[in-house]
Amino acid sequence: MAREPGWSVRLKLTLSYAGVIVISGAVLLLAVWVFLLRYVPDVGIRGQPGAGNLWPNFPDRSDLVVAFLPRVAVMLAALLVFGLVGGWLLAGSMLAPLTRITNATRLAANGSLSHRILLEGRNDEFRELADSFDTMLAQLEAHDAEQKRFAANASHELRTPLAITQTLLEVARNDPGRDTKDLVDRLHYVNTRAIDLTEALLLLSRANQRAFTREDVDLSLAAEEATETLLPLAEKHGVTIETSGDKATTVGSHALLLQLTTNLVHNAIVHNLPEHGTVWVRTSARSGFVVLEVENTGQKLSPQVVSTLTEPFQRGTQRVRTDHAGVGLGLAIVKSIAQAHDGTVKLTPRPGGGLRIKVRLPAGG
């Protein structure tokens, strides 16, 4: 927005300081003037001529005006100069931290997110503003790095099915007599994987933007729905699902929270023991928040591997199944949906193998 140039804050503060000093001095001198007038008569008492001059000469108010007013003018002028010079220096000293913050803002606007103000001194309003700005810059820098990493990984993941499709089509063109059934099956698999990846990216973007309508959602019902949907997959893998818990109502998008629950249960099924695995799905309501917990048996995981599982396209080599490897966004979507609902996700490895994931969300009405 184009705006007309105005006075600087430093000049405004300088004029304010000078004005306060001049007005204070004028009030003080006026008080002195009024005080003097009480003890100076309108007409002076002159001494009597003759011997002795028993009565001394006293000044009257006209004498006071002649003696006092010029000095008042000089004093006010001196106060004005002192106020302007002192106010300019004092305002510059007071606004120095603001100048550093402004320079850091310009650098950030030009794309330099690594700069920090690092304001020294004791804690005051400027120090709090500078520290808050440094925290914001650190978060923006981390978010920017995460977005760049995500874009690079997404480009790589999307390029893979496209490259495979191009290779299959070239093979088919160079070998017209080849049986097309196997080619069609492989193209169908690659195309389905590309569609799944694209839908996952769109869902992740939607969760990050928080572009959804909020309503009351019972996580226990979402857990039951997700379990029923994935029951055939669990039977195929020989996994038993056990659900328990109380009503746990939060506020958010039913579709996104159902997707969160489905991703957790699906992840627990496909990354389980080769046979006779178990998945536990539990919900609970606490004071001010609700909890959805999904736990599964499986191979032992190190804390280092677990700490990376919510990052996009992180699959942990010990947890990948060739038939349901997914697109590497399942738990990343869970984390984004939870954060979009002001919640948290905590992953911990089970001592006997497998994973425990606890989602904590604010309680609804």
Score class of each variant (00 low, 15 high):
residue 10 R to D: 14
residue 10 R to W: 15
residue 11 L to M: 08
residue 12 K to H: 07
residue 12 K to T: 09
residue 14 T to M: 08
residue 20 V to S: 14
residue 23 I to M: 14
residue 24 S to Y: 04
residue 28 L to C: 13
residue 33 W to T: 00
residue 33 W to Q: 08
residue 38 R to L: 01
residue 40 V to E: 09
residue 43 V to S: 11
residue 43 V to N: 15
residue 44 G to H: 00
residue 53 N to A: 08
residue 54 L to G: 12
residue 55 W to A: 07
residue 60 D to A: 05
residue 73 A to P: 11
residue 85 V to Q: 01
residue 91 A to E: 08
residue 96 A to C: 11
residue 102 T to D: 11
residue 105 T to V: 14
residue 121 G to Q: 09
residue 124 D to E: 10
residue 126 F to N: 11
residue 138 A to G: 09
residue 142 A to N: 04
residue 145 A to F: 04
residue 147 Q to S: 08
residue 148 K to N: 11
residue 155 S to W: 05
residue 157 E to G: 03
residue 163 A to H: 01
residue 168 L to I: 02
residue 169 L to Y: 06
residue 169 L to W: 04
residue 171 V to F: 11
residue 173 R to W: 02
residue 175 D to M: 04
residue 185 D to E: 07
residue 191 N to E: 13
residue 207 A to Q: 11
residue 213 T to P: 00
residue 216 D to F: 05
residue 217 V to M: 13
residue 222 A to G: 06
residue 226 A to D: 04
residue 231 L to T: 00
residue 232 P to T: 03
residue 233 L to F: 00
residue 240 T to F: 02
residue 246 D to S: 07
residue 246 D to W: 03
residue 248 A to E: 09
residue 258 L to H: 07
residue 262 T to V: 03
residue 265 V to Y: 07
residue 266 H to G: 01
residue 274 P to K: 12
residue 276 H to I: 12
residue 280 W to S: 03
residue 284 S to P: 10
residue 284 S to L: 14
residue 287 S to H: 09
residue 291 V to P: 00
residue 294 V to E: 00
residue 298 G to L: 08
residue 302 S to G: 06
residue 303 P to K: 03
residue 305 V to C: 05
residue 310 T to A: 10
residue 315 R to P: 03
residue 324 H to I: 01
residue 327 V to G: 05
residue 337 I to V: 15
residue 341 H to A: 07
residue 354 G to F: 13
residue 357 I to Y: 01
residue 360 R to I: 04
residue 360 R to Q: 06
residue 363 A to V: 00
residue 363 A to L: 01
residue 364 G to E: 10
